[in-house]
Design a protein around this nucleic acid. Structure first.
Lengths: 215, 215
DNA sequence: GGAAAAACATACTGACAGTATGTAAAGTAC
DNA sequence: GTACTTTACATACTGTCAGTATGTTTTTCC
């Protein structure tokens, strides 16, 4: 102790541990939030395997006892971090799709574009694309509600129902699209000329959407 | 010892350790092969994180000293397993594409279908789709030669050059396709009716290929 | 046949996920 | 407000495992 004082509440920074005169709920929520912020910062920077729970606890300014009081395992901590990440991505996608509410297929396109752009961040990629599959497994990734895959499925379903694209089963196109975007984001982020790579990919996506709309 | 005898050389099974009267090259190759086989079996069944090097050594019938003589780390062992898996997938894809050698775009389609079908195996998925990204990272996955991504890129390039599909930059479509197939394979393998899901996805892929060919 | 190097094997170390147990703060009943 | 319970932590420990250090056996090559 002694170096765990001060410093406000900025993104993932070490946090004050003075929590007297609070309701239990407030204490718990604040502790969980500190832990998740710290975990997100370290998972994003160093990756899941290279991040120790002790490092997370140090950064959050709490003990391992506190962590294990609120989480059941390292995997559980990551699950919550992943959920938050998905919720954030979902909001971005929803916002973009909302601008084309009357044209369902265009809404999907704008959602895809937004997902792609938001997924260019190496930290987001580390969590959602690189570490999540191994740490959570496919089932673990999908058993949380309100994620981007569900949004995509919903968008495709609406496009089919409205007749914006020819009738077809929804799932195959959903997964094809979702996988295409994830891998593309990884590739674009590693490209020499990143803006050009993004523009080319969006253009290709545009071609693809137009082609699918024509049947 | 005592239980490490007999039993031939079937897939990943424990292997005899009697290696007298051999050239060093033969000894090394055999040991490496035993280790890689054992590692592939355990990684595929239990996953990367849940597989210990000691378990791999036990199964291969060698010591940790032997493993570290031939590999530099656990990650290095996985890298070689991943490479073998990619080589196998590549052969399958190449074989399928060869049947449509005169129609470049059809060759890509058949290659994709073959890749998809070969990637339905949960053990293949565990290694190539779930664990590889986290264990090797994006760069680590791509710095090996002769993999499926390169095949896809080559196929798309030929399709463009031959005029089978409209001119476009090769990389975006390559990554879109590659990602689409990987995610789809994961989804199909978890579907209730797996053959139906595969058929639907292949049909969707067919639609997509036709649409792209028309421009 | 003997030195050198390759191919192992064995014993150990440090890091870390998870557990067991103890303590202080908040909630609850009276 | 006091006694009791529960929640929210903290500390100390354990088992496992990746990686290392060092020793031994087997080939190679002169």
């Amino acid at each position: 102790m002694g170096d765990a004082q001060g410093c406000g509440t900025q993104e993932g920074a070490r946090v004050s541990r003075v929590r007297s005169r609070q309701t239990q709920r407030e204490r718990s929520d604040a502790t969980v939030d500190d832990l998740v912020r710290a975990a997100r910062a370290l998972f994003a920077e160093d990756g899941y395997a290279a991040t120790s729970l002790e490092a997370i606890c140090d950064r959050a300014g709490v003990s391992k006892g506190a962590l294990y009081h609120h989480f059941s395992s390292k995997r559980d901590v990551f699950r919550v971090v992943y959920e938050r990440e998905q919720e954030h991505l979902s909001e971005v996608v929803r916002g973009a799709a909302a601008k084309e509410a009357e044209r369902p297929w265009e809404a999907v396109f704008e959602g895809c574009r937004a997902f792609l752009e938001a997924s260019l961040d190496p930290q987001v990629q580390r969590i959602t694309q690189l570490d999540a599959p191994g740490a959570l497994g496919w089932e673990g990734m999908r058993e949380l509600s309100g994620n981007c895959l569900e949004l995509t499925r919903l968008g495709v379903a609406r496009a089919v129902e409205s007749g914006a694209i020819p009738a077809r089963p929804v799932d195959p196109l959903t997964f094809l699209l979702y996988g295409a975007l994830g891998e593309s984001a990884l590739a674009i982020a590693r490209a020499k000329d990143q803006p050009a790579a993004l523009a080319e990919t969006v253009a290709e996506l545009r071609t693809l959407f137009d082609a699918l709309a024509r049947g």
